[in-house]
């Protein structure tokens, strides 16, 4: 069972990873977007870390919703509503079915797709989130799930962007890893390191 203490460890690990990779995310974003992804993600997860005691005093589902709201309010770019929706939906789903983690994750990924009006293979974070949902549903061990996510990030390099700012570049977006895919791998790696 996952509880608020697991969430606490996961969120702090995510905040640390995002902070450590902020410049890398910004560099990836500068190539095909507007170069603010690192700073935006760092602002969002720093705000979550600063509020970690209040957030994790809540039951898991409520805590996840609080994380989502915090990200929406602090990230500032399009990733705010996208990552915010991921956590908000995890919270909403787990409030109804407390231990249906894999189902909740699938629903959360679908909610992110709806929020971004996007789908898989459009060079976004969904290119990572969807294969991870498939791997979780297949019951793969954590190390395999992380491997799937890593391969998925690499796969965004040769893809052409169809959604988001990078789509303005058309074919010129090919050859660059998607920054949102990269940041979602940071979340998945950090979470996998601490979740049971």
């Amino acid at each position: 069972m996952i509880d608020s203490s697991h969430l606490r460890a996961a969120l702090l690990a995510i905040a640390e990873a995002v902070s450590a990779h902020a410049e890398e995310l910004t560099a990836l974003d500068a190539a095909i977007g507007d170069g603010d992804h690192g700073a935006n993600m760092k602002r969002g997860f720093d705000a979550v870390a600063a509020d970690i005691d209040t957030i994790c005093a809540k039951p898991l589902a409520e805590a996840l919703k609080a994380v989502g709201t915090k990200l929406v309010m602090t990230i500032g770019g399009a990733s705010g509503p996208l990552y915010g929706t991921l956590f908000l939906t995890l919270g909403k789903e787990l409030a109804v079915n407390p231990e249906a983690y894999v189902v909740a994750y699938r629903k959360a990924v679908e909610a992110v797709a709806a929020r971004g009006k996007s789908g898989i293979n459009q060079k976004t974070l969904l290119d990572v989130l969807y294969p991870v949902a498939d791997a979780l549903e297949a019951g793969k061990p954590k190390s395999d799930v992380v491997a799937v996510a890593r391969a998925a990030v690499a796969g965004t390099k040769d893809r052409k962007a169809i959604r988001g700012r990078a789509s303005f570049l058309g074919d010129r977006s090919i050859g660059h890893i998607d920054p949102g895919a990269r940041s979602s791998l940071l979340l998945i790696e950090a979470a996998a390191g601490v979740l049971p």
Binding site: D34, D36, M73, G76, G77
Partner: peptide, 12 residues
């Protein structure tokens, strides 16, 4: 502007 006053948008 984003929550820090740079270019971007803020839900709040």
């Amino acid at each position: 502007g984003n929550p820090e006053g740079g270019l971007g948008t803020s839900v709040e």
